[in-house]
């Protein structure tokens, strides 16, 4: 089943076209990667899908709801983790978890149970009363992700979630993402780390506001005769530039 369906999505900022007729769909339970250089329009797409920004035109359904009319229902069914770090530094680990859980309307008992479970899984029981500003960045990032899926959304949107994180933590972070899909959560992730694309089930490569190609990492590598996703990306990006020159 398609959990996200996008047809002819166009987003303009004045005369600048950020998204130029995008058409794609995301299957339930997959890790769907959105790749592209900075300014390629990845974040814009994500913001539209989350209801943070209105599209200029196009048909867009998220979790079965219309992006134009049913924004509130969409918001209830998604989780979101932004590029910038999104926990409150002057609240404790536990307070951050409970705050977001409360915002998503979870019941108190459920919150307490799941909080204990989560802290145990993350091995953070001992620091649950520490302020976020006092714990290491890698931990914060993992916690931010856990908070984004704490209310068990159907889809979680991750906007460049691993920016500024060391390779080991990035690895662990992707393990957490895989765990989440086992719980049936669909993951929509943007990144500009090409090695991370390998972890995705399917990858969309965006160049200058358009979808340059969309497939599984393996098929993309075969198609472009490339060793890794980085080469795939470079070939696609170069093609776009050549096209501009003509």
């Amino acid at each position: 089943m398609d959990i996200i369906r996008v047809k002819d999505l166009v987003k303009k900022f004045g005369s600048f076209v950020a998204n130029d007729h995008l058409t794609f769909h995301v299957e339930e339970g997959e890790i769907f990667g959105f790749l592209g250089a900075n300014g390629a329009g990845k974040t814009t797409v994500m913001r539209i899908l989350c209801g943070l920004s209105a599209p200029t035109s196009g048909e867009i359904m998220v979790a079965g709801y219309n992006v134009y009319k049913e924004r509130e229902k969409i918001k209830q069914n998604i989780g979101y983790m932004s590029q910038k770090f999104s926990l409150y530094e002057d609240l404790t680990v536990s307070e951050n978890i409970r705050l977001y859980a409360g915002i998503y309307g979870m019941r108190k008992k459920e919150i307490l149970n799941r909080e204990d479970e989560l802290l145990e899984r993350l091995k953070m029981e001992e620091i649950k009363n520490k302020f976020i500003r006092d714990i290491p960045l890698g931990w914060r990032q993992k916690l931010a992700f856990s908070v984004a899926i704490f209310h068990q959304p159907r889809i979680v949107f991750l906007d460049e979630p691993t920016g500024g994180v060391d390779p080991i933590t990035r690895r662990q972070f992707w393990e957490m993402i895989h765990e989440a899909t086992k719980e049936g959560i669909t993951v929509f992730v943007t990144t500009h780390y090409m090695d991370e694309a390998e972890y995705c089930d399917r990858v969309t490569i965006m160049v200058d506001g358009r979808i340059a190609d969309l497939d599984t990492p393996r098929k993309l590598k075969e198609k472009y005769n490339a060793k890794n996703m980085n080469e795939v990306f470079l070939k696609l990006a170069r093609k776009a530039k050549n096209g501009d020159d003509k």
Partner: peptide, 14 residues
């Protein structure tokens, strides 16, 4: 500034 507004806007809070 701290990027905490986006998650709030993406949440069911109006």
């Amino acid at each position: 500034e701290f990027g905490t507004m986006e998650p709030l806007l993406a949440s069911p809070l109006k």
